[in-house]
Amino acid sequence: MHFGLSEEQQALVDTVRAVVARRQSSTTLRDALSSEFGYDRALWTALREQVGVCALAVPETMGGMGYSSFETHIVLEELGRSLSPTPLFGSGVLSVQALLYGADEKSKSRLLPELAEGTAIGALCWADRSGRWRTDGSGVDARSAGQRWLLTGTATLVIDGMEADRLLVVANSGVGPALFEVDPHDKTLARRSTPGVDPTLRFASVELVDTDAELLGSFGDSLPDLYAAAAIALTALQVGGAQAALDRTVSYLADRRQFGRPLASFQALKHRCADMMVAVETARSISWAAAWAAAERTPDLRWHAAMASSWCSEAFSYVAAEMVQLHGGIAITWEHDAHLYFKRAHSTAQLLGSPHEHRRQITGGTVTPTGR
Rank of each mutant, 00 (worst) to 15 (best):
A290M: 06
I330C: 14
G131I: 00
E281P: 03
S310Q: 10
A178C: 09
R272T: 15
A244D: 03
P87C: 02
I362T: 12
F266H: 10
L124Q: 01
P262I: 04
G161T: 14
A279N: 06
S285W: 13
W44K: 04
I286A: 05
T135G: 14
A164Q: 08
V319N: 09
D225Q: 08
V319E: 04
S35G: 11
R256D: 13
A213N: 10
M62R: 15
L326R: 00
D275E: 06
E7H: 04
R272G: 06
L100I: 03
S25D: 11
G353C: 11
L124G: 01
T119L: 11
S317W: 14
L157T: 02
L150R: 14
A46M: 13
A233M: 15
L237T: 00
Q258K: 15
R360Q: 11
S109A: 15
L223F: 01
D300A: 14
T348K: 01
S193T: 12
R110M: 09
G122M: 04
H356N: 10
D255R: 07
E7W: 06
G153F: 02
R129S: 13
F3S: 13
F70E: 01
A231V: 15
F316A: 06
D337G: 08
I74Q: 03
V239D: 03
T28P: 14
R272S: 10
L43G: 04
I332R: 05
D141F: 04
A127R: 11
G153N: 00
T333S: 15
A42I: 11
G4V: 02
